[in-house]
Amino acid sequence: MGTKREATFAFWVFMAPILLGLLVFTFVPIGWGFLLSLSDARNSVDIGNFIGLDNYAFMLQSPQFQDSLITIIIFTIFIVPLTLFASLGLAMLVNGAGWGRGIFRTAFFIPTAISYVIASLIWRMGLFSGVPSGVMNVVLYEWFGIEAPISWITSSNPPWYWLVLVTVRLWLQVGLYMIIFIAGLQEIPRSLYEAAFVDGARSGWMTFRHITLPMLRNTLVAVLLLNFIAAFQAFDEFWNIMGGTAASAGNRSLARPPLVYLYQVALGDQDYGRGTAGAFILTAIIVGVTLLQGRFFGFGRST
């Protein structure tokens, strides 16, 4: 019995700090935020001035919030499949590399360690700067003879800013998902491929379609989910590329995701009631899509 009590004691010693941390820094703020979303809380985070669902009604009817949802859906449609294909492709190439596997793996993974803010600034001021000396404009001029510099971020017709926003995230996150795919690929027993070859299968599309892909299903679904959630929470690259400071706030109107809008409402306008209401609507969308996705792809079901 003594060991059981000791084990219980040890359990609480190890778990108490994290549970306490979760309670104080996660669950209490979530509960507080929910009550705030039902309150008229302007320039205040005090609960009590309850106004029912007014904040939710406002956010759902707000053209700004609706536009932000459209913006993030467009972004998700671009970034999720692109990341999926690019990271799976890279994982197969790196995994199949005859030599230097470690070097390639590291090289593709390194961008993950770079902050979104710094990458955004490199993209905005270096690669996609609108002046003729911007890297992409130089490339266009030197290689393709296109003389007129493109203002990548301000241009709305065609909306080049999507190229800037999608490529920066792709570069930053593709390495991380590549590592997850490599782990998934290494889980697949070699014997499956060997058995297939004995049965006359050819290496390439056939084994990929009938062995690799089915065996990777759980990894694929996990990457899809993580990617979708991360895309819906996009903030840093939008904030820093489409504005950055008070000046040129007009660019922010071109592509403003929900988190940027909620930041403006809650902190900029000091309307914590509407801000938290918007946050709960966004959470509901993420949870809803995740559940649907899980049901559709059967996440966690054994293959």
């Binding site: 700004q64 007009g250 900029g268 309307d271």
Partner: peptide
């Protein structure tokens, strides 16, 4: 005049110029 109003007219002028 508030920041929320600024967001509204910024979006308006941006839509006029860009869309």
């Amino acid at each position: 005049w508030t920041g929320a109003m600024n967001t509204i007219i910024t979006d308006a002028l941006s839509n006029i110029l860009n869309s």
